[in-house]
Design a protein around this nucleic acid. Structure first.
Lengths: 109, 109
DNA sequence: TTCTTATATTACTAGGTAGTTGTACTTACT
DNA sequence: AGTAAGTACAACTACCTAGTAATATAAGAA
């Protein structure tokens, strides 16, 4: 059972860091509907082909997505659906945080 | 209700990024037992005072921790306990990922 | 084979960030 | 007042990374 401690803090941080990039989050969101090719993902996210491919390697390396090759095209899909549960938690925290900051601003007026 | 989309992908990524650093994870883990001063945290994590203080500002800014000043010392504590739920999810995914990679290595022998 | 398509990789640049050192600031104590 | 303790901040360095452009690789089509 892996837990947060000095020995594996780096490995855990790597997994968080992989999600700490807007383009990679957009790629995951695009893949939520189903399998996509690199070209489709580049079109949907508005990113360049090389950049999208590089970000996909990061997500692949961390096991958030999986890949299937067919001819010259690579089909990517979500491999760990828990990633969306994590996004929900972060969104919830973000919402609370925005509320808190709004109240602080109101107090300062 | 905040969701993952183009407009707020950056804000969500910022919150993930704040957790994507080993020292900050160690600080959260140290604070799990209860309130700590900066000096105590520096001692427990083995980090320098200035560096610990800087990382704490990041966690504070994102609302993961809260601060209370008493005399010259600052007492930090966990503000959003959900952060540990996220660590559990990441640890679970990490475990699955390690299993998967072990199997791949075995297959290549 | 030659050309085309789709993806991966390399080299490069600009911006960001962790860690350290030194210092300023604030509070308490004498 | 002066001193000490605890923290925050600024400046600096070394490293990392997102994005881009060019190229390499691989599979199919003509």
């Amino acid at each position: 059972m892996i837990e947060l401690s000095g020995t594996n803090a780096s490995a855990i941080a790597e997994r968080f860091k992989a999600l700490g990039e807007p383009m990679r989050l957009l790629l995951l969101e695009a893949l939520r509907r189903g399998e996509c090719s690199v070209g489709e993902l580049a079109e949907r996210t508005g990113g360049g082909q090389a950049n999208v491919s590089k970000h996909l390697q990061v997500l692949l390396q961390q096991g958030y997505v999986d890949r299937r090759k067919e001819g010259t095209t690579s089909w990517y899909r979500i491999s760990d659906p828990q990633v969306f549960r994590m996004c929900e938690l972060v969104c919830g925290g973000l919402e609370q945080e925005l509320d808190r900051k709004r109240k602080l601003l109101r107090r300062r007026k």
